[in-house]
């Protein structure tokens, strides 16, 4: 079974200070803080590795490929995945700003999936900065594959099937399914990617990252992807600081009344 795991490297936005949230040309510069795995994708990567381990004894090994879109700055992440024994680490070369263009990313991924004949695609439901939450869904549509979202567990089954556990709005669903399928990973209980040893980095990290130029994999027409992508008109700041409204006059009972009438009543109604 060929499994493709897609991931994105995202800046750690919690490291930005208030003054950093300056919007210039409809963008915020996030280039001076550390990058990390997108958490949902990190779960997806670890889930893929666990799936492959379990599959080893049941139905033979899987062929694992990790793919991301970006410039060479993300190669160190791809190298880590090689050290964790992904057979292929692929980077789709892109320099442009794709924060709000899941359509473009999905089009490229679909091209790569078709070209490399994958059976299963695993990726996080959503990633930071853009917070589009659309890429896996659009990918499924472009491939014409079924899709399961909010996946929290994947196990191998006989006859090339997978047992997929996913969260529903009022419960948990466990299905045995026959690929092809796009699985998008939600709030999985295990969310951290294992860490490769220095030895494995030396042994497996020598393999090089495969770099793919988008024009080599685009099968359907790109302009459609661009047109249908929503256009960012403007970005505006939101007040993140809590208000810290002080209630300090009157008796305790007066204060409780103000608190209740002004702030709690509406909220309690929603609970």
């Amino acid at each position: 079974m060929k499994v493709l795991t897609c991931f994105k490297v995202v800046p750690d936005l919690t490291l930005l200070t208030d003054e950093d949230w300056q919007v210039v040309n409809n963008q915020v510069d996030v280039g001076f803080v550390k990058n990390d795995w997108n958490p949902f994708d990190e779960s997806a990567l670890e889930m893929t590795l666990k799936l492959s381990e379990l599959s080893e004894s049941l139905s033979g090994s899987m062929e694992l490929t990790a793919v991301s879109v970006g410039n060479k700055k993300i190669d160190s992440f791809l190298k880590t995945l090689l050290a964790l024994k992904f057979q292929h680490a692929v980077r789709i070369e892109a320099e442009q700003d794709l924060r709000f263009n899941p359509h473009q990313i999905a089009a490229w991924l679909a091209g790569y999936v078709k070209k490399s004949h994958q059976d299963v695609v695993v990726m996080g439901v959503q990633s930071g900065v853009g917070d589009n939450a659309q890429t896996p869904l659009l990918l499924a549509e472009k491939l014409g594959w079924p899709s399961i979202t909010q996946v929290i567990g994947i196990k191998p089954e006989k006859n090339g099937c997978l047992r997929v556990t996913s969260q529903m709005d009022d419960g948990v669903l466990e299905q045995v399914i026959k690929p092809p399928v796009v699985l998008s990973v939600g709030n999985a209980p295990n969310s951290f990617l294992r860490v490769p040893t220095l030895k494995d980095k030396l042994n497996y990290g020598k393999k090089s990252v495969e770099v793919i130029i988008p024009t080599d994999i685009i099968v359907d027409n790109t302009t459609e992807a661009e047109i249908h992508a929503p256009k960012l008109i403007k970005l505006s700041a939101i007040e993140n600081q809590r208000d810290s409204v002080k209630i300090q006059d009157g008796t305790p009972s007066d204060k409780a009344t103000i608190l209740f009438n002004r702030y709690l009543k509406q909220r309690l109604k929603k609970l």
């Binding site: 490291l15 930005l16 200070t17 950093d20 001076f32 803080v33 550390k34």
Partner: peptide
């Protein structure tokens, strides 16, 4: 390198 890179790192 850009001083802001150092400043943000230091603050965290």
């Amino acid at each position: 390198v850009e001083p802001k890179l150092i400043q943000r790192w230091f603050e965290n």
